[in-house]
Design a protein around this nucleic acid. Sequence first.
RNA 1: GGCCCGGUAGUUCAGCAGGUUAGAAUGUCGGCUUGUCAGGCCGAAGGUCGCGGGUUCGAAUCCCGUCCGGGCCGCCA
Length: 586
Amino acid sequence: MNTQTAYRTHTCGELRLKDAGKHVKLVGWARRVRVLGGVVFVDLWDRYGITQVVFNQQWDKDLYEQAREIDREFVIQVEGEVRERENKNPNIPTGDIEIKAASFKILSKSKVPPFIIEEHTDGGEDLRAKYRYLDLRRPPMQRNLIFRHRLLQFTRNWLSEKGFLELETPFLIKSTPEGARDFVVPSRLYPGHFFALPQSPQLFKQLFMISGFDKYFQIVRCFRDEDLRADRQPEFTQIDCEMSFVDQQDVMNTFEQFVADAFKSLLDYELEPFERMPYEEAMNKYGTDKPDTRFGILITDITKDVKGFGFKVFDTSEYVGALPVPDGSSITRKMWDHWEEYIKRVADVPGFFYVTWKDELKAKGPIIKILGEETVKELFNKSKVGPGDALIIMAGPWEKIVSALGTLRLHIAKELNLIPKDRFKALFVVDFPLLSWNEEENHWEPNHHPFTAPKESDIPILDTNPGKVKAKAYDLVINGVEIAGGSIRIHNQSLQQKIFDLLGLSKEEAYQKFGFFLEALQYGTPPHGGIAFGFDRLTAIMLGEETIRSVIAFPKNKSGRDPMLDAPAPISEEQLKELHIKIIEP
RNA sequence: GGCCCGGUAGUUCAGCAGGUUAGAAUGUCGGCUUGUCAGGCCGAAGGUCGCGGGUUCGAAUCCCGUCCGGGCCGCCA
């Protein structure tokens, strides 16, 4: 790599002892200036590293006096000789040498930065967001964005080599009422009409398959106007893929290889083969459709074991589940109260019981009295725990209880430090139900999207028992984070019509919404399917970052604002007029 | 839309069972210091305690409202 320019002969990261004696020119930011009487040290930083520059009164009195004026984050250019240090710094790669400055120039001064621009900053999140460009000057942020670049390049190369074509799709498209709320762009040429920004290029990539491109990918920005989370931004990046003439296994195998290769190539980490876990198993054992399988502690169904003891809560509940807590007998009462308070706050569960087993069984509530010690010990046994441990028991509707236990499982594991760091566990969750029943609107809804194919074996029960139909859909989960999701699509028109019927979409409505697409389906649609990765999430998880904001150069904050730009913002009367828009104050 | 946490010096925080002049660290500014690398030492400046209202003789501290930031639930086909 050639880094030599009109301003420099070397970067701040490349000089070593072997370069001693060379006359060099460096540019960079003065990261730290140490003024001692008679000698000035400047740590000169650029994205390649840090090189120490020295000014000495004895060498050049004037130059030394001028150097005292250098301040933090000034951009300076230094000319001088590389020499071996008197006191070496083993902590940095260039620590054996320094630049004996012969001359220097301040190219650009800096105001005092609002926070320390170092590995560990003292700045809070909102301040760093406002001065994002300064935060990005910090080594951790530089590393993150450089890693993101490498993952992008890796993805492009890997997919291209496998025959995928990078094809682009439009950003100004049509709003559809399904799914997430659309971001919308007013049309100047068509008063009262709006474009929408894509939530994903879903239908376009299917059209590419109909066009015969066979393998498509795109690293593409998607837009969803929903509330934010640590792992959710209103605009985010997908690795969007689609393949023709494939079934589930083909897609999963291809992208298992992709992810494994990415981890190997970028992190030198060997992922274990990805488990394929049915949705039902994920829910029953982990209480979620995105299980974190890095640690044990599995939910156990004890419904049958606790019925018939005359305890109303158990006898009348659809489901009773148990969650083991290893070493739970030494947990303080305060901690238990905290967990109970936590789960009641986030999950709205009716009953929360726990039993600890130290020398003897102890319970909060009447559990032992009702079930008897023997039965309780059997429950421990069934949950694969015993003396020294504890058991949490909750009763109620299956889905509610199982998710509450799953939420607690994660919460407790975090607080007890049971989750191994520096470990990655990837799996595919499969066999999702195709549809779920919408109580309020009284019709079936697609769990994934309305073009997802059902499993062939379940097609016969589409009419009789739609809730039991499984989809050819799959989610890739790493460390409990949903990283990718996809499905095999319907390529058969009558099947597609049947699904629309189930969803309560009339022919007219369906045509109004996806007319172009339904039309396209009639011109020779190949069997096809695909997957889309949350690229920001993948990057974040590979880097061990808690939020995707850390891997996005200029993210929105929690309230969906850009605190640096101060956007969104009002526009002028003229702009509004041109767009034929009148503001209705809320 | 709901719940939780936070907002005090440039910055990160302490102070908050109401009571003297609101503190620390760090940064900033000034001085001294020739081998530092989170340089050291001495000194100084620096505050609308987010904002508005209320309770009180008295509010950073208690109450209500509001704004801002973060986490979660809802939402995210």
